[in-house]
Nucleic acid binder design. Structure first.
Lengths: 394, 394
DNA sequence: CTGTTAGCGCATTCAT
DNA sequence: ATGAATGCGCTAACAG
């Protein structure tokens, strides 16, 4: 017994040591009188050392631990007096329930994992924003991780994410053919909703890239453009592929030859050389359709430098709107994605699958839902349209 | 005993029920032969029902629970054979350590709380991005919450955040005079680093708003501008106040009258009316200095609509660079903030305070560190400078 | 090298 | 209305 006492003491001492850095109040007990009451002297030492716990509040308010728990969880079956008393202690000690302990009891963790290529990308940060709103409405927090579109990183970060036992997952899969990810999805213990790109076995919230690209291309065709250059980077991405498909489909339908260049890399300089190359060919393009925001700005920039008149000499349509697209000279015609809706709807779909806290089982059909949000061709000037500069959205 | 058995059964059944949605494999035990071995029939049911645990892996690989733990944590003091055996079981079951349980043992949670006004704001999402990189380097995850610059929301979301016991906090305080937040900071069990705005008692990573605003204003003065209108929204924010101070200081030094309008709200339309008002006055401005990104674009837009020539009729300098600032006609001169550094340095500072996992106590001086990163006046054309269109950064 | 065990803080049951 | 006791999954301190 003495041995055990000794052990306990050592343990407490260590813990004390560890928490010292984090602790504001250090109720000393070095002066505890003798060893007769080591337990009494010890108890408060340990308990008050770190972050306050239920037990601390219980002791401070002179009630049982269960009572405090009841108070914290809504205060049912607690007499008004004790309620007050405990609440005061809670405030005084700055008690906050330890989420980890709650999780361990098996309930929801009230967190949603969000795995996206990059939070610095405005597309994804917008999604994250609206998804976060929805999460907040469900009293949940967002747990972020980035994949950089790198399947390996994606997987490892996914593992880290899952260790935190999120209730569900919002995912922008780097590739649909990722074997390991596929496996993970199949045996995922929590519902997964993908954004922007589909993944087999997952619910998904997408935009109709194909149709929008098709429409945009046909719009250029309608302006009499014959040689429409389609400029893109990262053709491995689902959205890019779909847009390429839409472009090709339209060109085919119009009986025009597809001009696709997916060799565009990051950086405007490359774009300029690249575009210059195309312009110098014996059959130069009379329009450019860019499939990505960075491509759009790069192309615009390059055309500016080359002193080409937009849209007279060469028309331009970009995929994805951006804040200043309407402020440029000429204002850019773009395909506008309902970005914020993507994040919001995805989060809503996820929480729908989670069900309403109680044991209600939501319809299994949700697990395969595929939501395709419509894009919109935002006509401004760069496509050749005569655009009044005073549109409502500028 | 029978009663207890009954209870246990019910409990398991409930848990089973709850986890049913999340479970892929449902090893049935409804056909378990008789009730003689209900416990045996029950054990595997529970254990294999939900997410696999250490015990599951232990059973599957025929070793003890501690051994599995050792394997998972680096595999020291484990024979090569058992190592293989356990690792196989881990993979087969798809075991992932339950983070909550680890937390409960008192260690680091490997999460950093990030409380920012809005993740959709490119400034903060960039910060978040680099902060996330740092976190990832420290094997940590970012836990996001938004405040919308609303002290009340900030506080409540802070509470939610803290329940997850992050190891530290990255905070963009909505206001330095928030009493409750002050109190929280004082007794926070974890280190806090603020970004973009200081807060008493916290380490902070800022940019030199005052000096930069002063410099920008003086630059306009140097171009011979006399009536420089300073346009801003949300003058309650620290950064805006500092920039206003810098502007005023410069104007005073130049012997010019300060023209400040902080009534700018969100939305370009308002800006136009507002600017029109100023232009119609008997002493119209010959330059505008905007203190915020949205103000800059709004002003630019308004000037475009009013057909005013920039910079001939009116010069423009904005605070905060943005992607297309160099692509506009004319290219905008702006104060460029080291946004990504802010996030990175703040995170680094936080982890420095956290110490290197072991018990090493980092210098207490870190807790009060105030890092002021230099802004840079990026001269383009809108200020009146003759700007070669082929600068390296365009 | 390996298994057994004691809590971490909490919600929950059961007994009062 | 209240308190004591249990166990969630895990790590760390032991005993073999």
């Amino acid at each position: 017994m003495t041995v055990k006492t000794e052990c306990v003491f050592i343990k407490k001492a260590r813990k004390q040591d560890v928490r010292e850095k984090q602790t504001r109040v250090q109720r000393m007990c070095a002066d505890s009188s003798g060893s007769a009451s080591w337990q009494q002297a010890n108890m408060p030492r340990l308990k008050s050392g770190g972050v306050p716990t239920l037990a601390d509040v219980a002791r401070a308010s002179g009630v049982g631990i269960a009572t405090v728990s009841r108070v914290v969880n809504g205060g049912v079956n607690v007499s008004p007096e004790t309620l007050k008393k405990v609440q005061r202690a809670v405030r005084r000690l700055g008690y906050l329930p330890n989420h980890a302990a709650r999780i361990l009891k098996g309930g929801r963790t009230k967190t949603i994992g969000l795995l996206i290529p990059s939070i610095a990308d405005s597309f994804f940060s917008s999604c994250a924003g609206t998804a976060g709103e929805v999460a907040q409405a469900h009293d949940s927090l967002l747990l972020f991780a980035e994949s950089n579109n790198d399947p390996a990183l994606e997987l490892s970060n996914l593992a880290v994410l899952m260790q935190h036992r999120p209730d569900g997952l919002l995912l922008v899969p780097s590739s649909a053919s990722n074997r390991a990810l596929r496996l993970f999805v199949q045996q995922s213990p929590v519902p997964i909703v993908t954004l922007d790109r589909p993944f087999p076995g997952c619910a998904a919230v997408l935009t109709n890239s194909f149709e929008a690209a098709r429409e945009a291309t046909l719009h250029l065709v309608g302006h009499g453009r014959k040689r429409i250059l389609c400029l893109a980077a990262e053709p491995s991405l689902y959205t890019i592929r779909e847009r390429l498909r839409g472009y090709s489909d339209a060109m085919l339908a119009a009986g025009l030859p597809s001009l696709i260049d997916t060799s565009l890399a990051i950086g405007a300089h490359n774009a300029e050389t690249l575009i210059q190359g195309h312009l110098g060919s014996r059959t130069p393009p009379d329009a450019i359709f860019t499939l990505k925001n960075s491509a759009t700005t790069a192309a615009y920039q390059a055309l500016q430098r080359l002193k080409l008149n937009i849209p007279r000499e060469i028309a331009l349509i970009g995929f994805d709107d951006f804040e200043l697209a309407g402020m440029l000279r000429p204002a850019l015609t773009v395909v506008q994605q309902p970005i914020e809706d993507v994040g919001r709807r995805a989060a809503e779909l996820l929480f729908a699958q989670l069900g309403s806290d109680d044991g209600s089982t939501p319809p299994a059909s949700l697990r395969r839902t595929r939501l395709v949000l419509p894009n919109r061709l935002l006509l401004r000037s760069s496509c050749g349209c005569r655009h009044s500069a005073r549109g409502p959205e500028e």
